[in-house]
């Protein structure tokens, strides 16, 4: 019986996160192959206007839960609402992006539903028995596990920037259903005091298409401006290796690697980064890797698709100029 593939759409200040659109795009493909309806679920405040966008990316149905208590994401309220909705509607699968919200919400919801959860998946496939099976990286991406879940709904969080975006079709229409937010009072257990969003126009690292990163070869905090200039020409995010973070040259939130962020951009430019195995764990799934390093023996060259052996202080500014000509 067709129960639906649910995409829990993440929105912030009424902007839909790119990973949710990626999931709708991929979800559409699966919906077409399995005959299951694709359902977008949006929680928040004043979210009605978002239904058209999710329809454009492939949703057959949109479930809106519009409530003051859902204006900002909290674990308890969102878990409570989704738990009740899912138990009522019994979808086949529930998918979320592996974002800060996804990582926080999905495990709690999965346990509330007494189901398994495949986290941080990099691919999914239709399966006769388990509806969907997933591939997920383990040991920092040094291996992959192919997993299947036996309970319903099948739940997974998907890594951002893995599935391509479909071309949106603004003429698509979806059935819109409004559901009341049913929240267990015990789940209203957190008070948000303050949210501080770092003012940065550069893309979020985990979602960025292009990242330019600097490591020990940067030699100092002031030199990151070279990377920032380049990043701003091509719309990239700036990252760093652990060596640079430990040296105090750049904040930890920019660290890419096993104990930093895991990224999968289309293009990763590694400047003055040796390519230690822990760094590779964080960016090894990048589609194209460029390495710029003075040391011809640097391990990063074993991974890079294209590289230049040379001084990044000469090369990066020149590259910035070349990019300016192209953009």
């Amino acid at each position: 019986m067709a129960k639906g593939i649910w995409i829990i759409v993440e929105q912030s200040k009424l902007e839909i996160r790119k990973v949710s659109l990626e999931l709708l795009s991929q979800g559409r493909i699966i919906a077409d192959k399995t005959g299951e309806p694709l359902v977008a679920v949006i929680l928040g405040k004043d979210v009605t206007e978002l239904s058209q966008k999710v329809a454009a990316y492939g949703a057959d149905k949109v479930i809106l839960v519009d409530d003051d208590k859902l204006a900002e994401y909290t674990t308890g309220a969102y878990t409570s609402v989704l738990n009740k909705l899912i138990r009522k509607e019994e979808p086949q699968a529930v998918l979320l992006g592996n974002t800060a919200v996804g990582k926080d919400l999905a495990p709690r919801l999965a346990h509330r539903l007494a189901v398994g959860l495949a986290s941080d998946c990099t691919s999914m496939e239709i399966d006769e028995e388990s509806f969907l099976t997933f591939m997920r990286p383990i040991y920092g991406g040094k291996a992959f596990a192919h997993v299947a879940l036996n309970a319903r709904p099948v739940m997974a969080t998907i890594r951002p920037n893995i599935f391509p975006l479909a071309a949106p079709d603004d003429s698509r229409k979806a059935e819109v259903v409004n559901e009341a937010a049913v929240i267990d009072p015990a789940d209203l257990n957190v008070i948000i005091k303050e949210i501080v969003i770092a003012a940065s126009e550069r893309p979020e690292l985990i979602e960025a298409n292009i990242i330019i990163s600097g490591g020990r070869g940067m030699k100092g905090p002031e030199n990151y401006s070279i990377l920032e200039e380049c990043a701003d020409v091509i719309g990239a995010a700036v990252g760093a290796s652990r060596a640079a973070v430990d040296a105090g040259w750049i904040e930890q939130k920019f660290q890419v690697g096993q104990t930093g962020k895991t990224v999968s951009p289309t293009l990763y430019i590694a400047c003055g980064i040796s390519g230690a195995i822990q760094h590779l764990a964080g960016m090894g799934s990048s589609k194209v890797i460029i390495a710029i390093n003075k040391d011809p023996e640097a391990n990063i060259f074993n991974l890079a698709d294209y590289s230049i052996v040379g001084d990044l202080f000469e090369i990066v500014p020149l590259l910035t100029l070349e990019f300016k000509k192209l953009v």
Binding site: A114, V115, G116, L117, A118, T133, I138, G141, K142, A143, F144, A145, H146, V147, A148, L149, N150, A151, G284, I289, L303, D305
Partner: peptide, 13 residues
Amino acid sequence: KMNTLDYSLPSSR
């Protein structure tokens, strides 16, 4: 609730 069907190593670039 979850089975690992198999493990694999990434294809080397």
